[in-house]
């Protein structure tokens, strides 16, 4: 697929830390509206890839384009977020001394400058949207609870809710099912599929059951580059993938 029609376009991206190549000539293309699962063993470069896309880490070489035309390597985290890329971290990070409601209000798409927030008065439409999100992430009854008091799974959901509140074009979701019960995992998969209907989503996950339940195209990363790509059945049939996962 050409760069112009892609939503996210990575080409030949390399990152090294003190000689250790975290990403090695990684190339990856996400189409608009696509949902993609990314799997790979520890140290395959999944988190570093997220860091590069969201501006936390600058690539040593390579191109990163969003929406076909916007070069992300020159932007910082805040402007990339404003461009419409939302990120959920591996370890759930919500604002623990804020209530669930405040967490969502902060994430809500609105002008981000200090002066606009200083004089901001919450509008009825915003309240409606937060209520809607609260229903979606099943935290309606916890709206005045401090985020610190939520369970692990609830925090994961709250973070996904914050991601949605940003109304991004592309969601990067890092291990959304980590530390969840089976029931929660299944619910999360449903939630993500819901979201994928009107957003592009990239999910990084270890849990194969979870990935299978998503039923989308899978990219296998290994030692910083793409090892295989295709349906889950296709990649799990790939000998190299089996070798990487099971050892030789």
């Amino acid at each position: 697929m050409a760069r112009a029609t892609s939503l996210l376009y990575l080409d030949g991206v390399s990152v090294s830390f003190d000689g250790f190549k975290a990403l090695n000539e990684l190339s990856l293309i996400i189409a608009p509206g696509e949902m993609r699962a990314i799997i790979g063993p520890n140290g395959a470069g999944k988190t570093t890839m997220m860091d590069v896309i969201t501006g936390k880490t600058r690539p040593d070489t390579g191109e990163v384009f969003f929406n076909g035309a916007i070069d992300l390597t020159g932007e910082d985290e805040a402007s990339i977020a404003e461009l419409g890329i939302g990120r959920k971290f591996q370890k759930p990070t919500v604002f623990e001394s804020h209530t669930v409601w405040d967490n969502l209000e902060l994430a809500l798409k609105a002008p981000r400058g200090p002066f606009s927030t200083l004089f901001h008065v919450i509008a009825q439409s915003e309240k409606k949207r937060i209520d809607h999100l609260l229903d979606l992430i099943r935290l309606g009854s916890k709206r005045h609870e401090l985020a610190a008091n939520l369970s692990h799974g609830q925090k994961q959901w709250l973070e996904i809710g914050m991601l949605l509140a940003q109304d991004p074009k592309l969601l990067l979701v890092d291990e959304p099912a980590a530390g969840m019960t089976d029931a929660e995992t299944a619910e999360t998969a449903e939630l993500l599929k819901d979201i994928a209907k009107d957003h592009s989503v990239v999910v990084v996950e270890h849990d194969m059951v979870f990935v299978r339940s998503l039923d989308v195209k899978v990219t296998v990363l290994h030692e910083g580059s793409v090892l295989a790509e295709g349906s889950l059945d296709h990649v799990s049939a790939d000998e190299r993938v089996v070798e990487v996962y099971l050892g030789r």
Binding site: T54, A78, A81, F89, T93, V94, H98, E105, L106, Q166
Partner: peptide, 19 residues
């Protein structure tokens, strides 16, 4: 609220698009 968010999780705030 943004300030408190910065205090508690600075990089998270950044990823929400706040400078």
């Amino acid at each position: 609220k943004v300030l408190v968010a910065v205090r508690d999780a600075e990089s998270r705030t950044r990823f929400l698009g706040y400078r």
